[in-house]
């Protein structure tokens, strides 16, 4: 039987961490773009569009991410194409992230004083112009801390993609455990690597929030 050193285990886990990082980035950027679109729908002037966006958000926030992954994995398969795990994983995570980001950003947009909408409307701006030149620049400032905070959830969410067979950090943990029979060490290391990825994000979110609060108090 082969002996595995701690370095062997760690090296394999770190190699798999690359895929956790790539998937997190793809989900976050993709989710951000879809989320922005969803935000516009969510605060649209048309009631039907608003309701559609609300249902989308409710659906994705009210069901387990794991189920969404399963449905993406098996649902895409129904179209008759062979679905690789990374595609289902990326798609489900993007749609899931979008729902949460849209809701976070809606809160930020609604936190902007109503007078800003009225003032920009009185200057003859259309709705898109209002968003582009008046509302979003202000909302973006308060949106940064919760958005960075949510990125932690995205990184942790990628762990679930191991269940549909995408090989990232968690899956590598399972594979390495099966080879080494050292679950305590392996899962301990996996947890520490996740912690090393997530903690800086959590901390910077908290620090940004504190900075923003100080800036607001000086007004």
């Amino acid at each position: 039987m082969t002996e595995f050193t701690l370095w062997d285990i760690l090296r394999n886990l770190l190699l798999a961490t690359r895929w956790t990082i790539v998937l997190s980035l793809v989900s976050f950027v993709g989710g951000g773009l879809v989320g922005l679109l969803l935000l516009f729908l969510r605060i649209s002037a048309h009631k039907a569009v608003r309701i559609f966006a609300r249902c989308y958000i409710e659906l994705f926030q009210g069901t387990p991410l794991l189920m969404q992954l399963f449905i993406a994995f098996f649902g895409l398969g129904l179209l008759g194409v062979d679905v690789p795990a990374w595609l289902a994983a990326g798609l489900a995570l993007i749609l899931w992230t979008a729902a949460f980001l849209a809701e976070i950003w809606r809160g930020c947009v609604e936190a902007i004083a109503k007078g800003q909408w009225e003032a920009s409307a009185s200057l003859g701006m259309g709705r898109l112009q209002q968003m582009r030149y008046v509302i979003l620049p202000q909302a973006m400032k308060i949106a940064v801390p919760p958005t960075v905070g949510f990125s932690v959830q995205v990184v942790k969410g990628t762990a679930l993609t191991s269940i549909i067979g995408f090989v990232e950090l968690s899956k590598a943990g399972t594979v390495v455990t099966n080879a080494t029979f050292q679950p305590f060490t392996v899962y301990g290391l996996v947890a520490l690597i996740y912690f090393a990825l997530c903690w800086p994000l959590s901390r910077s979110s908290q620090m940004l929030e504190r900075k923003l609060n100080v800036a607001h108090r000086n007004h």
């Binding site: 942790k156 679930l160 269940i163 305590f184 996996v190 947890a191 912690f195 903690w199």
Partner: peptide, 20 residues
């Protein structure tokens, strides 16, 4: 901080497979 910055799945695996 440890719990909030690691996935639930890994916490579960650690408790179920690691603690024995």
């Amino acid at each position: 901080e440890l719990i909030r910055n690691t996935p639930f799945l890994i916490q579960l695996f650690f408790i179920f497979f690691g603690l024995p």
